[in-house]
Design a protein around this nucleic acid. Structure first.
Lengths: 145, 145
DNA sequence: CCTATAAAAGACATTTTTGTCTTTTATTAA
DNA sequence: TTAATAAAAGACAAAAATGTCTTTTATAGG
């Protein structure tokens, strides 16, 4: 498998797409998002539903409805998406799956992993959901295939 | 889930345990390994069988048989285990799951991910299977729970 | 050769992930 | 109020990951 789960990959791509459209004041439907990020529409629906419950994105039903992200939401870090989907263990757990592992009682890879995870966390916390909006709108960056 | 799959976690722990015992010239049975690294014995059997096919560990059947690692094998990097189990995409694929993603046509997270993956690769390539043997034998490091 | 041992192999079972389809609910606009 | 729209929700289905159990094969030692 990849680094993140499929669910997380779809979520990251979808949220970035919705963010870019939101910055133009547009709401977007599941179908459109799925087409643009190349994901199964109904499956994506479930994912967005969950992200909506978490408050990471917003949605309204009915005509002119769809998914969007409030201005403040565009400033949130990608880490919020990853944590919502992969859970905290992905970013903070022991690399070897040992529950006892800690600074005082480390597993063989503890120090090396600590370093890697720290960088991953920094990266996911410094990068915001709306950070790529302009390039996505311009078409310099794309999210499909 | 964790950073690696369960299968990979078990593999890393098991190979380290077998390595430590091998450095003392001992062969070990599935049951013993499973007990010491806290994993389901039969499931671990399949994993070790695969690692054996890949030549990462050795085994002999029958009395006095079991799993072991040749001296040269102790020098191999942990990356070999991770790649054997997770595949190359885990260490080299696009973080957002985009197949087009490359240096020339990067995804939004390409540069940041490149950095993280590079560090992960360095870590897994510089660390050898036999690196923790002494501490494991002394009991300074453990591999269960 | 015979027996005990231990991995290899194969057949399943369970759980989680991923994906599809249908029905319900909320909202807008005519 | 009605019709159309679009997300929410629920019921399944398929595939992959994880786990268990049984049978087969290879080997050492008596």
């Amino acid at each position: 498998m990849g680094f993140f789960s499929k669910t997380c990959e779809y979520a990251l791509r979808a949220v970035m797409y919705i963010a870019a459209q939101s910055s133009d004041g547009r709401k977007v439907g599941i179908k459109e998002v799925a087409d643009r990020i190349n994901s199964p529409a109904h499956f994506l629906g479930k994912i967005l539903q969950n992200l909506s419950k978490e408050g990471l994105i917003q949605s309204t039903k009915g005509p002119q409805g769809g998914f969007y992200i409030e201005p403040d939401g565009l400033k949130r870090p990608l880490a919020d998406i990853v944590i919502a989907i992969e859970g905290t263990r992905f970013l903070n757990g022991c690399g070897m799956g040992l529950s006892y592992c800690s600074q005082e009682n480390p597993c063989p890879l503890h120090d090396d992993f600590k370093e890697i995870r720290a960088r991953l966390n920094i990266m996911l916390h410094k990068t915001t959901i709306g950070q790529f909006n302009e390039k996505l709108i311009q078409g310099v960056l794309t999210l499909n295939k």
